[in-house]
């Protein structure tokens, strides 16, 4: 295991009752790499992301993150989560807090920063995702979906995580709002942040991913460079899935 490997997943399994959701996932992610996971819905991609930041407890296998095994019982879950940012499909902003308070909460309560420092960092994070001052004191419901998701990204990056996880960050957005969120994510990838993105946006994958993983039925079926996996998939299953996605895009 090289020291440039930030995340190392070995033979990961997860069951929901009798339902075998993850069937032996092996994945390694280097520092600074951005990995896009594509695949049909219900294939376990979301569960995989939730296992990485321990929102879901895997049943078998190992996850090593930042040179530390996090799948043993002894680990401090909160310290791991603090180092991993998570962006949800439905944004999941705190409904009772304004945009800036959403970003500040973790800084104050987890990092124990004084309010002033937290505010400065939050402002910076919000500006970096294009949320300008007039929106800072709005509540989530007063923002568009695209704005909410960008605030959610700011909330994640303000914590200075070593790894960012995106769980279908644009699936819940109206088509005209997808672009603004993807642009922010591209910028993050170009800054050299380590990120894993579950998405159907193959355009984003081609532009911003260092590696694409095709995931189906609880396993990684194929992985490689974006061009190779998206434009020239080797397996029949990946070919069929990508064909249907490309059809959809052409129609739009």
């Amino acid at each position: 295991m090289g020291s440039d490997k930030l995340l190392f997943i070995e033979d990961l399994h997860k069951y929901y009752g009798k339902h075998h959701v993850l069937k032996g996932v092996n994945l390694a992610v280097n520092e600074g790499e951005s990995v896009v996971i594509i695949g049909p819905s219900g294939s376990g991609k979301s569960t995989l992301l939730r296992c990485i930041n321990l929102l879901v407890k895997p049943d078998k296998g190992r996850i090593v993150f930042d040179n530390e095994e996090i799948t043993t019982g002894k680990i401090d879950v909160r310290r791991v989560r603090e180092k991993i940012g998570f962006v949800f499909q439905h944004f999941n902003l705190f409904l009772h807090l304004t945009a800036i308070e959403n970003v500040m909460l973790g800084l104050i309560k987890v990092k124990n920063y004084p309010r002033e420092k937290a505010r400065r960092i939050a402002e910076e994070a919000l500006l970096s995702v294009g949320i300008t001052e007039e929106l800072w004191n709005k509540y989530p419901a007063q923002l568009s979906g695209g704005q909410q998701q960008r605030v959610a990204i700011a909330r994640a990056i303000a914590m200075e995580p070593k790894l960012l996880l995106f769980d279908e960050p644009t699936s819940a957005l109206d088509p005209e709002l997808i672009g603004e969120v993807l642009k922010v994510m591209e910028k993050l990838a170009n800054e050299g942040r380590t990120m894993i993105v579950v998405t159907h946006e193959i355009g984003f994958a081609l532009k911003a991913a260092d590696r694409v993983v095709f995931f189906d039925d609880g396993k990684i079926i194929e992985e490689g460079s974006p061009e190779q996996v998206i434009l020239n998939p080797k397996t029949e299953r990946a070919r069929r899935f990508l064909f249907s996605i490309r059809e959809l895009y052409r129609l739009e």
Binding site: F86, F94, M159
Partner: peptide
Amino acid sequence: VPREQWEAALSIGLSKWSTITNVIIPQGVR
């Protein structure tokens, strides 16, 4: 209070107790 609020709070590293006092109670009391 929607379950997603829990997930969001845990994902930024808040403890269970901190989630209850900072997220669940302020929303629930209203």
